[in-house]
Each structure stands twice: as structure tokens, then as C-alpha cells.
């Protein structure tokens, strides 16, 4: 693949896309990886060819990687450590009647 000047394709012509697959109806789309593609149409095709070869899904989402806003790794302690001491937030302190069955 070349551009007009004959050099290899630049990264801005084939940006990165994050790929999300819904394994089956009723479940949420989950992140599975990323692909390079020129645009969203090609990104969905690339995702189909790379990530659904073994029947992994029934739906694909692609999102430009540049559109993802991530939490700052430097703020990891202040973001996530305070929850470690709040185990009462887990719904494991009451009994579920047997009649309810599988939740």
C-alpha cells in the first residue's frame, strides 16, 4: 500500500479502532481487541474477519481508539483503592429465598 509519494501508508490513513463483540443476544458487547482500517465500514469488516472466525459473536461495534477517554494510571490509587474497605457494598450480606431460584 502506497500513497502518492510511494512511501508506506501513514498511520493517519489507517487509524486504530477498538472492537467490541456481542457474543450472543442478551449479552453486552465486550472489548476484544483492535484493528487498523481506513474508515468505519472497513473497520467493521476487519473486525469480522479478525475476531469472529470461530463464531464468537452476533454483533460488532467499532470505535475510533482516539475517541476513548481513559482514566489516568497515575490516579489509580485515588480512584480505586477507597473501595477496597467497603465490602458492605457487595450484595452478599443477605439470604436469597430458595423460591427465587437462579438470580
Amino acid at each position: 500500500m502506497s500513497d502518492d509519494s510511494g512511501t508506506l501508508m501513514p498511520q493517519d490513513m489507517m487509524p486504530l479502532w477498538e472492537v467490541f463483540i456481542r457474543p450472543r443476544t442478551g449479552l453486552a458487547h465486550s472489548h476484544v481487541g483492535s484493528v487498523h482500517a481506513s474508515d468505519e465500514v472497513m473497520a467493521v469488516q476487519a473486525a469480522r474477519d479478525v475476531y469472529t472466525r470461530r463464531g464468537e459473536g452476533v454483533s460488532i461495534w467499532v470505535v475510533p481508539s482516539a475517541s476513548i477517554t481513559a482514566s489516568d494510571p497515575d490516579q489509580r490509587d485515588e480512584n480505586f483503592e477507597p473501595t477496597a474497605s467497603k465490602i458492605y457494598r457487595h450484595p452478599s450480606f443477605y439470604d436469597i429465598p430458595d423460591d427465587v431460584g437462579h438470580m
Binding site: 489507517m14 487498523h36 476487519a46 474477519d49
Partner: peptide, 12 residues
């Protein structure tokens, strides 16, 4: 293939 994605798409 010119890129990894096509290296899977073509054999598919």
C-alpha cells in the same frame, strides 16, 4: 497481505 487484517480476510 499488506496488513494483518487482510492477512486473515483473504484466507477466510
Amino acid at each position: 497481505a499488506p496488513m494483518l487484517e487482510e492477512d486473515l480476510a483473504l484466507p477466510n
